[in-house]
């Protein structure tokens, strides 16, 4: 074993070799500025794949029933837009995620504040939440349908439940992770407990909260996908399930693309929020 390692990497080889950390670092140095200058290059591969895909479909290599050609997906999207169906289902889905996230933020933040700011709160709140978070919450769908029926409630509840955990866990860790040295400073400045929380503990926890929010949004869309594929009569997920019944793979692809764009857009929104709320961080570290 040790012989093998020696063979692969004699002392200093990583600096010269074309593989390994040294080469990787050198590549980073060289390619980073060029990538920034030619941002378009990053779109080359996806575009190439699309062109190949269209060619494969047109030539009959890819059966249209299994994978529709990109142009057919675009056509389906245009039809859905013109008929107003896409906007309708999209707004229903957006509303569900917004409601679920709002509940998750309120619940996750309150629980994290209560647990993070008092030992009693921690002892009462943290153990059940730590236990509950190990449960794959999507497995609760049958129970939710029994409890809440098949209306909006189970779908919003599923989003809310899934998104609460990352908010709670990150904010709680952020509150508890406040730098004790700064806490000491607050004491020497004569800050009250409320002042300490307001000026030191909460600002220190904000980056963690925003990280939690980003995870929460990802989970919210995931929960929505699951929630909308069961007993729904509207929403992007319903649109896709309905299309399945009619073998309309092009519409399913439109649904996938919409989900992807929504995920991307909400991630960008949180990044923008981070840039604004965490303006005090040196520029290079924002959004990492």
């Amino acid at each position: 074993m040790s012989e093998q390692v020696l063979n692969v990497a004699p002392p200093g080889a990583w600096r010269r070799g074309s593989t390994g950390i040294g080469a990787w670092l050198r590549r980073q140095e060289v390619s980073a500025p060029r990538l920034r200058g030619l941002g378009l290059r990053r779109f080359a591969t996806p575009l190439g794949i699309l062109i190949l895909w269209q060619a494969a479909s047109s030539s009959g290599v890819l059966p249209a029933r299994a994978v529709p050609p990109p142009l057919a997906v675009v056509a389906a999207a245009r039809d859905l837009l013109l008929s107003g169906a896409l906007i309708h289902h999209l707004s229903v889905s957006l509303l569900r995620v917004a409601a679920g996230l709002a509940i998750a933020i309120a619940a996750g933040a309150s629980l994290a504040l209560a647990a993070g700011l008092s030992r009693l709160g921690e002892d009462l709140i943290d153990p059940p939440l730590q236990m509950a978070r190990t449960l794959p919450f999507l497995a609760l769908v049958p129970l939710f349908i029994l409890w809440f029926g098949i209306g909006e409630t189970p779908k919003v509840a599923l989003v809310a439940l899934g998104a609460t955990f990352p908010i709670y866990l990150n904010l709680f860790a952020g509150i508890r992770g406040a730098d004790p040295k700064l806490v000491e400073v607050a004491a020497t400045l004569g800050l009250s407990r409320a002042g300490l929380i307001r000026h030191v503990v909460l600002p220190a926890a904000l980056p963690h909260f925003l990280t939690g929010l980003r995870y929460a949004i990802g989970i919210a869309w995931l929960s929505l996908v699951v929630g909308e594929q069961i007993n729904a009569d509207s929403g992007i997920g319903y649109l896709m399930m309905d299309a399945r019944d009619f073998l309309r793979t092009d519409i399913i692809m439109v649904g996938l693309a919409v989900y992807a764009l929504l995920g991307l857009a909400s991630d960008q929104a949180v990044r923008a929020l981070e840039r604004k709320a965490l303006a005090w961080r040196p520029a290079a570290r924002v959004g990492r």
Binding site: K181, V185, T188, H199, L206, W280
Partner: peptide, 14 residues
């Protein structure tokens, strides 16, 4: 009383 520490210990968000 007031303290100056070895590190500045400023709140980075203020």
């Amino acid at each position: 009383r007031a303290v100056v520490f070895q590190e500045p210990r400023l709140m980075p968000w203020k």
